[in-house]
Each structure stands twice: as C-alpha cells, then as structure tokens.
Design a protein around this nucleic acid. Structure first.
Length: 875
RNA sequence: GGAGGCAUAGCUCAGCUGGGAGAGCGCUUGCCUUACAAGCAAGAUGUCAUAGGUUCAAGUCCUAUUGUCUCCACCA
C-alpha cells in the first residue's frame, strides 16, 4: 500500500489525465454493436479563461459522459472552441491600439494574420484548462468554429438558405454598436435601467402660430426628425394634423402626422419621429412615407446632416443641443426620467439604432417547426419551465441580422458585380460574374455573426455537409448541457438549424443549469472583481473536490452561490474516502481474499451490502434524471455515515481477532464495497477513484469498468432491519454514556433482556467494540439485575447498565422523562391518524399497517419507560 | 407591460410522484479510540414567508398577498 496519510490530489491528477488521454480512453469507436451516446461541448470562446461557469458546465457533462461510458455506450464528448467574432476582434483591436495601430492601417490580411496568431497563443489555453478539470473529451475530434470543416458547413448552409430565399439583404433599422462599429442582432443588445431625463422641447409651427411640445430622451436625434406624430383620436391635436412645424436648430420644416403608435397618456401626446434612428419611428416613417435622414456616422459622430453640430460626438451633440434649445427659449422643461438603455453585450457602449443595409435570416419559416418539436416533446427542457422561455422567444422572433462589420469571422460568401450589379452566392468562390462575365467582382466585406456558426455545431463538428461515419453514428446527439443565459443565442438556433439542415432534431434533451454566483449572490464578473478562479481552487484542493462541491446541494436549473468555503467539505469528504481506502488496503496487505459470495456473510456484511445496493439503485436513478445534487448527497451519506462510521467500525472486531478466515472474509467484503464505491463515485471524482483503484491492484482503468447496477442478490431487507436493532443498542449506550457523564474510558457491563437472545449474542462483539462494553450478559428479567443501574429501552430489548455510585437518580429520571415525552408524542400522532375514519378508509393499506406497527412498538416502549420511572422513584 | 424563479435551522442550501422536517458550515459537550483532528462520539436549534382553499393527510398541490431575484418587451 502506497498511499500517504492525507489526500494530496496535486501529486497524481495530471499524471492520471495524461495516461487516460494517451491511451485513448476518451476516443470512442464507431461500433454498431454498441449504442452511441454523444454530447457536444458548448464551445468556449478562444478569448476565454476557464471560469466557474465553465467548471460547472463541464463537470456536469463529464459526469454524464463518464456514467454512460461505464455503462457500455460508445461515448463521444466532442470538444471545441468558438472564434467569438466580436469578443476576439475587440481584443485584437485593443492590442493594436496599444501599439499605436488600427485595423485600417494594417489592413485585412495582416489583421487576420494577427488574429490567427492570437488564436494560436491563447485559444489553446482554455482547452488545457478543461483537461485539468478532468473532462473526458475526445480531443482527437476537437473542432473550431472557423476550421475547415465548420467553415464548409457555414458555406453550405448560407448558400442553401439564400437559394431558398431564407437569407436576404435589406436596408432595415438595426442595432449598431458605435464602439465596435458593427451591427448587432437583437439578442446581442442588453438593456440596463439608467437615470436620464425627459426633455420637453417646443417645436414652433411654421406659420408662427405658437408651438407644440414634444418629449424625448434623446434630444440629439432631433436633427434627423422628419415629422411629429400625434394620436388621431387625441382631441388636443386633431385640428393640427397636417400642419407644418419648424424643426428647431435646422432649416427644415416637418409635418404633423397622425399615427396610432402614439399613446394618449404619455408625455405631451406628441412624438418626434426620427426614422433613421429609432425602430418604432422607422415603422411610422414607412407608413407615412417619411424621409429617412441619418445624422450619425458609424462611430456615433454627427454627420453632414447635422447643421451646426457636424463633427460632434453624440454625447457632445446632446449637451450642445440642449444648451442651444435653452438659449432659444425652446426648452419647456426637463424631468428626471429612468429608462432602459440598450448596450452592446461585448463592450457595453450604448447601442444606436440606425438604418443600414445588412444580411438577414428570415425567421418565420424556420421558427415554426422548431416550436413544434418542443411542443410535441421531441425535445424537452430540463427543468421543463425553460421551455416557456424558449417559446416566448421563438414565438416573437424577428428576422436575424447576421452580418457584422468585422473582419474576424466567416466572410459572407456573396460577391457583387460592379458592371451589372449581380449578387453571386455560390458554394465555390466565383471568378467572374456569371451574368455579364465581368472579372472585377468583389466579395462582401462583412463577416457572419458568431452564432451563425455555433448554430451548426452539433452537426458541423461531426462532418456535415459530408455524409460521414461520425455524423451517421453520433447525430442526433443525446443531450445538450448549458446555462439558461444562452437559450436564445444558441439552443434555439441549434434547434431550427438542425431541423432545417439535417432534417432532424439536434438533441432530444436540453439540460439547463444555473449560473455560478458569488457568496452574496452577485454574478461573478471582471469589473466587480468577485470572480473565483477555478484553477486556483484546483491547485489548492484538487479537481475532484471542485467537481464534487459544484454538484453538492444543487437542483437542476437553479443558480449556485459559490465561495471557497464550499469546497472544503468536499475536500474533507475525499480525504475521508482516501483514508477509508487506506484502512482497507493496509489490512489487506499480503492477504489472499476469498471471492465475494463464496462464504457466509456476517450480519454487518449483509447490512452494508443491502445499503450499498440501495444507494447504487438511487444513484443510477438520479443520474438518469440528471439529479446530480441528489446523487451526490446519496453517495456522501452512504460513504461517510454508513461505510466509514458504521461498517468499517463493525469490521474491526473481526480484523483485530485471531480468526484468519473471518479476517479474510471481512476484508473481501470491505474490498468489494470499496471498489463499488470507487466506481459509483468515478463520474463525480475521476482522479481520486482512479488513483485508489490502481492501488487496489487493478490493472485496467476504472474509466472503463462496468458501472454498478442494482442486484437482487443483495436485497437483504430483513437482515438489514434486524441489524438496525443492534445499531440502536449501540447508539443508545453511547448516548447514555454522554448524558450520564460516564467517562469514555470506563468499560460498561450490559444486562440485556430480549426476545431474540441468539441474535443479540451473535452480534455482541459489535456492541462491545463500538460502545466500549466489557461484557454483554443476558437475563430473563430486570429482577435479575441486582446492582444499581440505568436502563435503555430499545425496540427489541431492554438493556441494564450497573453503574453503582455513578448512577445519578435525578439525572436518570430526567433522561427517562424526556424519552417518555418523545414517545408520548409519537403515540399521540399515530393514534390521531388511526382514529381518523377518513385515514383508515382512504389511506394506502401498507401505510396503515406501518402506522399500527409503530403504535404497537411505541406503546410497549412507553410501558417499559413508565416501569423504569416507577422503580427509580423507589430507589 | 409580460413571463418565470425563490422565500425551510444562525449562514448556504437539499427535500423526487402529498403520508413521521434534512445536509454542510457554525454552535455546545466529551474524546490524540492502532484509516482519517481535513477526525470520532453525543447533542441543541425550525409558527417550512402570510392568508385562504383542495385532501383522511400539505414544506410538497391550487388561489391570493408580501418580500426578493431573473428574463423578455421597450411608451417617445
């Protein structure tokens, strides 16, 4: 045996992982005699560092995949990374800026070169970190959203959708990030409540007959106003509809139009209409045929349409415009006003809605079947409530803006002919315009939304569009594991993409987990500096402890508050397992153990085998339902309380005896239970279990050992219950010792009155060892115990313990009275139920029988307690 | 405005299909008992948010209320 006294994960985790990987245990075969089981990883961004969210997400996947692998499935966990178009580009631009450079100066080619270098340097980092966590991913199949295979899939899908008319180009109002200088999809905009103002501005009538007051939160957009709208039913303004207004600070005149969009009871009832910079105004503009005047360039600076404000940044322009309006006496009032402001999800800059020509995916047709498969339970969310989130999004979905004015990503495969204006979208790069033969065609400058490629992940990584063996065997995947915050970005898009391009759902189950928060319940973020680095935790406590703590006390879908003190109990638990193993191994050294089942079990053996069997069934059931927190708790309790605290202690009389046969048989059971425990635990804590497994003399890896399953052979329910009565005696003696202040060192003498003397006698050694008892004597009745003693009333027996002068009658009286009170409470409860005619008539029979039995037993106990109390009174 | 979560021991949270309130940490007491002090043994601690309802039976199901968090929408 070669295990140090304390569990030191640092000394073996990396070595074990390398061995697993090099021996190819993570790599499945396409084996048609086996059932495939596959998961694709939610690809982390190449810009990413492993954070607690990744740790949780991948721990869950690894538990699922290891369980299935041990159950004999051909198991694939396909890893990879995401190029993260915006996030990466932002980082590279920042780096350029530090060098005093920018994108335009170095040009597209050089930029991409740098991006690939960046990917080579940092992109592998997170993948290494995933290994440290123990993730059993098949790295030979590792994918990247911009690798050749995925890019081919993107091209295929784009062209197919374009040909079907599901991808189109159009000038529409979109979300624009002036910092990243790109369009964003609706999902990429985050709204944050901000304190601002509601400015009330006077718009004079062109004919000089007074003014109207409009209210706005963005006065600078006034420069692009092309109308003021009122509600047609608003009596205040019905006669004004059609009149012209003089637009302040400009030389333009704009009409008053009537539109239902205007609410009667908000603000002044008049809304300035800026079609180029507000989605609602854009719609109003379309209805009234209004001019669309863009007043800002791509970086948020006022353009040539801005009169005196040309060249000002949008914030400066706002300030100046407010000032000028005040000077002109056109500012009616300024009210404080909190409202939601849209921000870029990457850089947090305030998003500017602008009209721009972009590429879109038409969503109606794609969304419909994607809703149906969830509706029909072809795909289910776990927990189920997240399907509501999904429906809500899918049923209100708008067309998806997929073009980004960035360079890092899949370049849009569209070419334009300068001669005839033809747009060419083909699977192969065209060299000339097929219509007019012009050779000067040029490719669209933009790239695709990152999520366009991740939407294809479950099949692009398996070889789509080629008809590969992997794709045939492993698609659809079995379950997708992700946090709820990317249901829209990713899960929804994978579902409609899978249906559209593969004709099949990408996965039947979506397991949703929560977000890892800090001790105060806040999201972990760089800006708050409240993040916990999982790698530091792994260094300090080991990956197993981290993994185990992440599944402790968690329910599917709910957030986890995590702080370092949560990991310690897990580490302690693993140390416990470690030392229990040491105990078994130390005692087995140099011994040849009989085969399990080839000898008679002791009562304690049967007790632990029954419990082991029970926990085996529970863990399998919980894993099947992805109740990892429940499985975790079941294992924790069994290993610590049942195996260590009870069974190991119970084996000591035999192990320390001279009976070599009994010793070896006991060790055989201990070893068997330990190995079953290691296998049960392995998906949760892969490293420690492998380490001990090897120490048990196993040649092969535990990773590929068969996962324990429920066995009818070990269903010793009667033996189990019987042995519980022995445990009860032990517990009672210990309790009595503590309550009566009897020193632990003092050996006790027991006088037992029982109706099953044979059984108690057979188990006397356990009582002696575990309760520090000198002798267990049997007597016919209490009358045979002449010394001054205290007593225990257990279910099958009464135990008298002569304590001589140590007996404190007062104390003993109190102790018995307390027990009596508890018993009376129990009896009252049982009687209440059994005297209730409704209960007796309607409750399940088994339950009634159980209750009757309890009442019977408790009444007997009560009677004995009363007897004892009477006796004490006479002492 | 719409949707959803949560409210259980001092703290952090479990509690599956209704049937005697649980864990970890913390706390009290006693222990270096030849696997483990990262430990052992024995304890204490709960109007299961509030009010109704369904039921023989409710922490669990239904309704309302309060508090709290989140997502979606975006009325200038």
């Amino acid at each position: 045996m070669d295990l140090p006294k304390n569990f030191e994960p640092q000394s073996f985790e990396n070595e074990i992982y390398s061995e697993w990987e090099s021996k190819g245990y993570f790599r499945p075969e396409v084996d048609h005699d086996k059932t495939p089981f596959s998961i694709v990883i939610p690809p982390p961004n190449i810009t990413g560092q492993l954070h607690m969210g990744h740790a949780l997400n991948n721990t869950i996947q690894d538990i699922i995949i290891r369980h299935k692998r041990m159950q004999g499935y051909s198991t694939l966990w396909l890893p990879g990374t995401d190029h993260a178009s915006i996030a990466t580009e932002v980082k590279i631009v920042d780096k350029l800026r530090e060098e005093g450079l920018d994108k335009e100066t170095i040009g597209r080619e050089e930029f991409l070169k740098r991006a690939y270098e960046w990917k080579a340097t940092y992109g592998g980092k997170i993948v290494k970190q995933l290994r440290r966590l123990g993730s059993s991913c098949d790295w030979s199949r590792e994918a990247f959203t911009m690798d050749e295979r995925c890019s081919k899939a993107v091209r295929e899908v784009f062209v197919n959708l374009y040909r079907k008319g599901l991808i189109y180009q159009g000038s529409r109002i979109i979300n624009w990030c002036p910092h990243c200088e790109t369009a964003l999809s609706d999902a990429e905009v985050e709204y944050d409540e901000k304190a601002g103002f509601l400015w009330h501005i006077r718009y004079p009538y062109a004919d000089g007959s007074g003014y109207l007051i409009i209210a706005t939160t963005r006065p600078e957009t006034l420069l692009g106003d092309t109308a003021v709208a009122v509600n047609p039913k608003d009596p205040r303004y019905t006669d004004k509809i059609g009149k012209m207004l003089k637009l302040p600070l400009t030389d333009r005149e704009i009409p008053i139009v009537a539109d239902d969009y205007v609410e009667l009871d908000f603000g002044t009832g008049c809304v300035k209409i800026t079609p180029a910079h507000d989605p609602n105004d854009f719609e109003v503009g379309l209805r009234h045929n209004l001019e669309v005047i863009r007043i800002m360039d791509d970086s948020g600076v006022i353009n040539e349409n801005g009169f005196a404000y040309v060249g000002l940044d949008r914030d400066e322009a706002r300030k100046k415009i407010v000032e000028d309006l005040e000077k002109l006496g056109l500012m009616e009032k300024i009210e404080p006003y909190t409202h939601n402001v849209g921000e870029c999800y990457r850089c947090k800059a305030v998003v500017e809605p602008i009209v721009s020509k972009q590429w879109f995916v038409k969503m109606d047709e794609l969304a419909r079947p994607a809703i149906k498969v969830v509706r029909d339970n072809k795909i289910s969310f776990i927990p189920e409530r997240f399907s509501k989130t999904y429906f809500n999004w899918m049923e209100n979905i708008k067309d998806w803006c997929i073009s980004r004015q960035l360079w890092w990503g899949h370049r849009i495969p569209a070419w334009y002919c300068p001669e005839c204006g033809e747009v060419i979208v083909e699977k192969e790069d065209p060299t000339c315009c097929p219509k007019c033969g012009c050779k000067e065609i040029h490719q669209d400058e933009d790239v695709l939304d990152t999520w366009f490629s991740s939407a294809l992940w479950p099949f692009s990584t398996l070889g789509y569009p080629d008809n590969t063996e992997d794709l045939n065997y492993f698609y659809p995947t079995n379950v997708l594991v992700t946090a709820y915050d990317i249901i829209f970005f990713w899960v929804a898009r994978m579902i409609f993409s899978g249906l559209e391009h593969m004709g099949q759902i990408p996965f039947p189950e979506v397991l949703i987990h929560g977000i890892v928060r800090d001790a105060k319940g806040r999201k972990m973020s760089k800006s708050l500096g409240n993040g916990i680095d999982p790698l530091e935790l792994i260094d300090k406590y080991g990956a197993d402890a981290l993994r185990f703590s992440l599944t402790t006390g968690v329910a599917p879908g709910s957030d986890i508050r995590f702080s370092e003190d949560k990991i310690e109990p897990s580490r302690n638990f693993l140390n416990k397992l470690w030392n229990a193993s040491r105990f078994v191994l130390m005692n087995s050294e140099g011994k040849v153990l009989p085969k399990i089942g080839s000898f008679r079990y002791t009562p304690a053996d049967k007790w632990i085998l029954y419990k082991l069997n029970k926990v085996t069934r529970e863990v399998n059931n919980y894993l099947k339902k992805y109740e990892l927190g429940m499985a975790n708790a079941a294992l924790y309790d069994f290993i610590w309380s049942d195996f260590c605290d009870w069974y190991i202690e119970l084996t000591k009389p035999a192990l320390y005896s001279d009976n070599e046969k009994a010793k070896c048989e006991t060790l055989a059971v201990l070893t068997y239970v330990l190995k079953q425990i290691l296998k049960l635990m392995h998906p949760f804590t892969p490293f420690i279990t492998e380490r001990i497994w090897k120490e048990c003399g196993e040649e092969s890896t535990i990773m590929l050992a068969e996962y324990p399953a429920y066995s009818k052979k070990h269903n010793f329910v009667e033996d189990f219950n019987k042995f519980e009565s022995i445990k009860e005696i032990i517990r009672s003696v210990r309790n009595l010792r503590a309550e009566m202040d009897v020193p632990v060192s003092k050996k006790l003498n027991l006088y037992v009155v029982t109706n099953d003397q044979r059984y108690v006698a057979k188990n006397a050694s356990y009582v002696m060892k575990l309760a520090n008892v000198e002798a267990v004597n049997f007597v016919a009745s209490k009358a045979d115990v002449t010394e001054k003693s205290v007593s225990i009333v257990a279910s099958e027996s009464e135990v008298y313990i002569p304590l001589g002068e140590l007996v404190d009658v007062e104390k003993e009286m109190q102790r018995l009275s307390k027990e009596l009170k508890v018993m009376e409470g129990e009896i009252k409860r049982s009687e209440g139920m059994l005297n209730n005619p409704g209960f007796v008539a309607k409750a399940p029979k088994q339950l009634i029988e159980n209750e009757k039995a309890k009442l019977q037993a408790n009444s007997e106990k009560k009677a004995k307690l009363l007897e004892r109390i009477e006796e004490l009174k006479n002492m």
